[in-house]
């Protein structure tokens, strides 16, 4: 694992991608820090993290697009398969290397509050709130990087990988707003669920290349929804915002940005990351069987 980790880290900073990623974060965080703390004389440094969390939409696909797709294109995945290391080690090595790259701008941004403090001797700036927000920012990024890495393992084309990571992150980004906007009547819920199930079964078909698996997922999930919507429509009411709320990774970050330490949300980020790392390992293992 260390071997993979070192190799990945080196290649990020030897190439442009690592530097580009770090620079992107530093520029955006810097701009918001300037706008919030200096231009508007606010001591709420943590809002900078809140405001620049949209940058993940671009930065994460840039970071993750090559991680596994490129191995496949160069056929270096054959080396990884034939080395005496497990796929879990390979995936973790790559993931930790990306986390390391991501940690650079986050750590640098943790120096800024001290500068802000120099201009704010009255002490309104709360260091604990800032570091909690920075930690949550890092956790959010970690979860999204795991999602992007999984997307990268689905294809051997970096561009495709970047686009689907972007769509996936956009999806979880908008989810929070959507969950508040959508009404919860049973009819709408059933239709939206049917649509989501269709998407999911298409994804299953795409990943497994098996029509049977796709149809199976579709029917297993769709039939209960139809049955429930006819027999007990009240069950579906209000379910949509709840489900969307569960999927909204970003929503959990916003509470941190307000200075709340929410262990449940922290656990949520870690769970998402672990889940997608497991998916990635499975996706790599699966390729052997194709």
């Amino acid at each position: 694992m260390t071997a993979i980790f070192k190799k990945e880290l080196r290649s990020y900073f030897r190439g442009m991608i690592g530097c580009l990623f770090v620079a992107l974060f530093l520029v955006v965080i810097g701009l918001y820090v300037y706008a919030i703390c200096f231009a508007n004389s606010s001591p709420h440094y943590e809002y900078a993290y809140y405001n620049c969390s949209f940058i993940f939409l671009i930065a994460v696909p840039v970071l993750t697009m090559r991680s596994i797709a490129e191995e496949r294109r160069q056929k270096t995945d054959q080396l990884l398969y034939s080395l005496p290391v497990s796929m879990t080690q390979v995936v973790l090595g790559k993931y930790f290397a990306m986390l390391c790259v991501f940690a650079v701008p986050v750590l640098v941004s943790c120096v800024y509050p001290f500068l802000v403090h120099l201009y704010d001797p009255s002490g309104y700036l709360s260091f604990s709130a800032v570091f909690v927000a920075a930690g949550a920012f890092f956790l959010l990024g970690s979860a999204l990087i795991a999602i992007g890495m999984f997307m990268s393992s689905l294809t051997e084309n970096q561009i495709v990988s970047a686009v689907i990571s972007f769509i996936a992150i956009l999806f979880v980004y908008l989810m929070g707003q959507l969950s508040q906007m959508l009404s919860g009547t049973s009819g709408v819920t059933a239709i939206v669920f049917a649509f989501l199930i269709l998407l999911l079964s298409l994804l299953v078909f795409f990943v497994t290349k098996s029509k049977t698996a796709g149809w199976l997922v579709f029917f297993v999930l769709e039939v209960p929804i139809i049955v429930i919507s006819f027999l007990k429509p009240t069950l579906l009411e209000g379910l949509l915002p709840k489900v969307f709320g569960v999927l909204s990774v970003y929503e959990r970050f916003y509470s941190f940005a307000d200075g709340l330490v929410d262990l449940k949300s922290a656990l949520y980020f870690v769970t998402v990351a672990v889940l997608f790392l497991v998916f990635t390992v499975q996706s790599m293992e699966k390729r052997r069987w194709s």
């Binding site: 071997a3 993979i4 270096t76 054959q78 005496p84």
Partner: peptide, 29 residues
């Protein structure tokens, strides 16, 4: 796999590394 060394049809090389770095990586792995 510890007992096997494998050269696939297309050599699995990372173009952005030097042979020394590459071989050092493989040795470590």
């Amino acid at each position: 796999k510890k007992l096997i060394g494998y050269l696939p049809e297309q050599p699995p090389l990372y173009p952005d590394m030097t042979p020394v770095e590459y071989l050092d990586f493989v040795a470590q792995a």
